[in-house]
């Protein structure tokens, strides 16, 4: 059985203009030791998915569906049980390491805290373990770094400290939400490599959330593409990049500025990301899609099998020219 199984996850958020269906039936599974990528833009629901996994949804959110973690349905667990899982068996790394660390406590103390809480280690044992963890994420000299305060570290070092903290209790699942967006290019790469290596080494599952296709491509074997609260395409990373089956995946791929791209105009996806509060009926991408027909807005498209383990939610897949011949977008 998979470590994590998310089935038909639905989240409705209260907004000033009535309830908004922010997640509309998200399903995926994650095996132990696997790295799964989750790609999406703002408002796609990717961060909400992560928060749902940790039971940290905003107040007033209505949740439906199932999240099974190691056989237990997280949505049915009481808050106390969830607290025991959080930081212990499910850990999370946030986008901005500076705000996620307490500026008034030393790094060592912050890493030791979950150890004392979840594994009931003594103060000194936890401190020793914290130093060992800092060494493991490459913060050297570890003993010295443990005594440092967050502001004394650079952005990359803070992110390493965050990783050490997340790894403290040897979690089964690590959720990393845009872990490198706030980091410099060269440092981001090292952070990612470290996370992937540690995951592979310890058999920990990794859910990597990012808007950056490059990061997903380099770090994960399987990926999901989210748009408008839905998984619009999912499959092995290589297959998704080879096929670019869903028009949104293709548009996103083409619109990305590339180091080796031709200078000049970039292909664009017209329009902007829809507001979750008033998503159109049917396919959420229909309003921006060059291939859209009337049927697209009539009903939510079903997931269509494209290859082994590769699915896309689109009824116009047969109209899509083969990959390698990216659709040229209209002017902005």
């Amino acid at each position: 059985m998979a470590l994590l199984e998310v089935e038909d996850l639905r989240v409705t958020l209260p907004t000033a203009r009535g309830p908004a269906a922010a997640l509309r039936g998200v399903s995926f599974s994650l095996e132990a030791g696997e790295a799964l990528g989750l790609v999406g833009e703002s408002g796609s629901g990717k961060s909400l998915t992560a928060l749902a996994l940790l039971g940290l949804l905003p107040e007033g959110a209505a949740v439906g569906g199932h999240i099974r973690f190691a056989g237990r349905d997280l949505l049915a667990l009481p808050e106390r049980e969830l607290c025991r899982l959080r930081g212990n068996r499910i850990a999370m790394i946030f986008q901005e390491p500076m705000t996620a660390l307490n500026p008034l406590q030393t790094i060592g103390r912050q890493i030791a805290e979950p150890l004392r809480l979840h594994r009931a280690l003594s103060r000194s044992a936890a401190a020793d373990e914290a130093i060992r963890l800092l060494g493991r994420v490459g913060l050297k000299p570890a003993a010295g770094r443990a005594r440092a305060y967050p502001h004394q570290l650079s952005g990359g070092q803070r992110q390493r400290a965050m990783i050490a903290m997340a790894l403290a209790c040897a979690p089964d699942l690590l959720v990393a939400d845009e872990p490198t967006t706030a980091l410099d290019v060269t440092v981001a790469r090292q952070s990612l490599d470290l996370m992937a290596a540690l995951a592979a080494e310890s058999g920990m599952a990794l859910l990597l959330i990012s808007h950056d296709l490059g990061i997903i491509a380099e770090t994960t074997r399987r990926m999901l593409v989210m748009y408008g609260g839905q998984v619009v395409e999912s499959g092995p990373t290589a297959a998704v990049f080879a096929a670019l089956a869903h028009p949104y995946t293709r548009g996103l791929f083409a619109a990305r500025p590339r180091l080796d791209g031709m200078p000049g105009r970039l292909p664009t996806i017209p329009g902007s990301v829809p507001d979750l509060a008033d998503l159109p009926p049917g396919c959420p991408f229909a309003g921006r899609c060059a291939l859209a027909i009337a049927a697209c807005t009539a009903a939510e498209p079903p997931a269509v099998d494209i290859g082994p383990g590769h699915q896309a939610r689109c009824i116009r897949l047969d109209q899509q020219p083969p990959a390698g011949d990216p659709v040229a977008g209209g002017p902005a």
Partner: peptide, 29 residues
């Protein structure tokens, strides 16, 4: 967002030609 980034970059290109603008364009990317 990536899909919007491209629109704005293209716009800046167009405007530059149209109004003969000089840019000091700063980015980490």
């Amino acid at each position: 967002d990536v899909s919007v980034q491209a629109q704005v970059l293209n716009l800046m290109q167009d405007l530059r030609q149209r109004f003969h603008l000089a840019y000091l364009f700063i980015s980490h990317d």
